[in-house]
Amino acid sequence: MLPASLDEAVDALAAAPAAVPVAGATDLMEAVNAGRLRPAALVGLGRITELRGWRYEDGGTAVLGAGLTHARMDRPDFAALIPALADAARTAGPPQVRNVGTLGGNIVSAAPAGDTLPVLTALEASVTLARADGTREVPVSHLLTGLDPVRPGELLTWVRVPLLHAPQVFLKATGRSGPARATASVALVLDPARRAVRCAVG
C-alpha cells in the first residue's frame, strides 16, 4: 500500500492493523533479512511529504516529522536548533543510510544502538501516535522501555522536542573509525529553566 496522505496511511493501518509502516526501511530490512520479522503487509510512507519536514510550535517546541531523514537533521539550520540530535544523525551510518534512514524508524525499531534515542530521551521528547479514532501523545522514554508501546493500527507521525537553547552533546563509541554502530553512546543536555542536567545512555 502506498498512501499519498497521512489520513490515507492511518486508514490503511486501520484496515490492516498487522501491516508494518515503512519509510527508509534501513532497520526493517535488516530485521527481515535476519529472519526476525515477516510483515504480513507494508504501508509505504514515502509519498507523504508532510512527515519529512519540521516546524516550530508555540511554547518553544520543535515538531519533527517521523519521516525526517538523518541527512536532513545534519544540516546547519537544524543543527543550530537541536545540536545533539544533529550530532547523533551525523554519525548514524554511511551516507546511503543517513539519506534514507528516518527519525520515526529509529524510534519505532528501538534498537539499543539507535543513535537518536539517547538524545530524544535526555531532551524529554514525546511522539504523536495516530490511529483511525484519534491520536495520543507518549514520551519517547515510555516507548523505549515498553511502558507504553506502539499499538497495532497506530502510526508514529510527529516527534515533539523541547528547545532548551543550552549546551547539549551526543557522543558514541564504536568498534571502528568512521560512521558505525554504537557499542555505547551518551547524550548530555543542560536545562536552564529547571536548573538541571539530564543524561541518557545507549
Rank of each mutant, 00 (worst) to 15 (best):
P3G: 00
P3I: 02
A4P: 00
S5D: 07
V10D: 01
A12I: 05
L13F: 01
L13H: 00
A14Q: 08
A16W: 00
A18E: 15
A19F: 00
A19E: 00
V20T: 14
P21M: 04
G24K: 01
T26E: 06
D27F: 07
M29A: 08
M29G: 02
E30I: 14
V32G: 07
N33Q: 15
N33F: 12
R36N: 10
L37R: 14
L37G: 03
R38N: 11
R38H: 14
A40H: 09
A41K: 02
A41H: 08
L42N: 06
V43E: 03
V43K: 07
L45M: 14
R47W: 06
T49V: 14
L51I: 11
R52F: 02
R52I: 01
W54Q: 08
R55Y: 05
R55I: 01
E57Q: 15
G59Q: 05
G59E: 09
G60P: 04
G60E: 09
T61Q: 12
V63N: 06
L64D: 11
A66H: 03
A66G: 12
G67N: 10
L68A: 06
L68R: 07
T69S: 15
A71E: 05
M73K: 07
F78L: 02
A79N: 01
A80W: 09
L81P: 05
L81N: 06
P83L: 08
P83V: 00
A86T: 02
D87N: 12
T91Q: 14
G93K: 09
G93R: 10
P94M: 10
Q96A: 13
R98T: 00
N99I: 00
V100R: 15
V100S: 14
T102Q: 11
L103S: 06
V108K: 05
S109I: 06
A111Q: 14
A111D: 09
A111S: 15
A113F: 13
G114L: 01
P118K: 12
V119T: 13
V119H: 02
T121R: 10
T121L: 11
A122Y: 02
A122V: 00
A122Q: 08
E124P: 03
V127C: 08
V127K: 10
T128N: 03
A132R: 15
D133W: 02
D133A: 15
T135N: 11
E137D: 14
V138C: 07
V140P: 03
S141K: 14
H142T: 05
L144Y: 01
G146R: 10
L147T: 09
P149S: 06
P149D: 05
V150W: 04
R151S: 10
R151N: 06
R151D: 11
P152L: 02
L155C: 00
L156T: 06
L156M: 06
T157M: 05
W158P: 03
W158T: 13
L164V: 05
L164Q: 09
H165M: 04
H165W: 08
A166Y: 11
P167E: 07
K172R: 10
G175F: 02
G175L: 05
G178E: 01
P179S: 01
P179Y: 01
A180T: 08
S185Q: 01
A187P: 00
A187M: 03
V189W: 04
V189E: 10
L190S: 15
D191E: 15
P192N: 12
P192M: 12
P192H: 05
A193G: 09
R195L: 11
R195G: 15
R195H: 13
A196T: 12
R198P: 01
R198G: 02
R198W: 12
C199V: 15
G202P: 02
G202W: 01
